[in-house]
Structures are given as C-alpha cells and as structure tokens.
C-alpha cells in the first residue's frame, strides 16, 4: 500500500522535501512508517528519543486527525486483550495522508 507523508517546517529540510509517497506492507502502523522514514542517524535522533520512543512534542496527523485522538486498536497479548491508544500504533491504509510537525517555538 501507498501512504502520502507531508512534512512541515524544519522537517522539510530533514526529510528532503514537502511530501513523500511511501510504500508500506499491509497492516503497517505509524511506528512502521516512522521507522522507514528515519533511515539516518540524524532523522532518527530528531524523531525518537534515546529509548526509541517518539519524542512527545512531535505532532502527527493521520488524515487530518491528531494520532493522539485516534481510537484505540484492540490487540491481544498472550491471550489478554489490551486496549492501545491510537497514537503511534494507529494502523495505516492505502491512500492515507500523514502529516508530521516539529515544534516551532521562537518569537
């Protein structure tokens, strides 16, 4: 499947353009997309912290909605159902549009 990614502000320089089309395996989520995009040390450092977690101040929209607000995906772990918040686990589908924002904080 194909997903369109839009970068904003300094991420346009970091990822080399305003937008990119990315080919992903079906069933991929935002985490998979970010892993694929962060193919250099610098890119990984800007997006993830040392423990590999998405930096909390990076804003990501999927089809215009903040991934923090997306509904959870129900998965099972060792037979136990776990309700995951959407967030980085939000599933992607063909044709989805993902937008990624760095903090802009100067005055």
């Amino acid at each position: 499947m194909k997903v369109k990614v839009k970068f904003f502000a300094t991420f346009r320089e970091l990822f080399g353009g305003e937008a990119k089309e990315v080919e992903l395996g079906s069933g991929s989520n935002i985490q998979d997309l970010l892993n694929l995009l962060c193919d250099s040390r610098q890119r990984r450092q800007e997006i993830f912290d040392r423990s590999g977690k998405l930096r909390p101040y990076i804003k990501i929209l999927k089809n215009g909605r903040d991934i923090k607000f997306l509904e959870g995906v129900r998965i099972e772990l060792e037979g136990e159902p776990i309700q995951f918040l959407g967030g980085i686990h939000a599933k992607l589908a063909d044709g989805d549009m993902v937008a990624i924002f760095p903090p802009v904080g100067g005055g």
């Binding site: 904003f8 502000a9 300094t10 904080g105 100067g106 005055g107």
Partner: peptide
C-alpha cells in the same frame, strides 16, 4: 498564537 523558526512560522 504565533511562533517562528528560521523561515517557518505558524
């Protein structure tokens, strides 16, 4: 609200 960074702003 307004904020800037380099050539970018919001």
């Amino acid at each position: 609200h307004g904020a800037v960074h380099g050539f970018y702003g919001q």
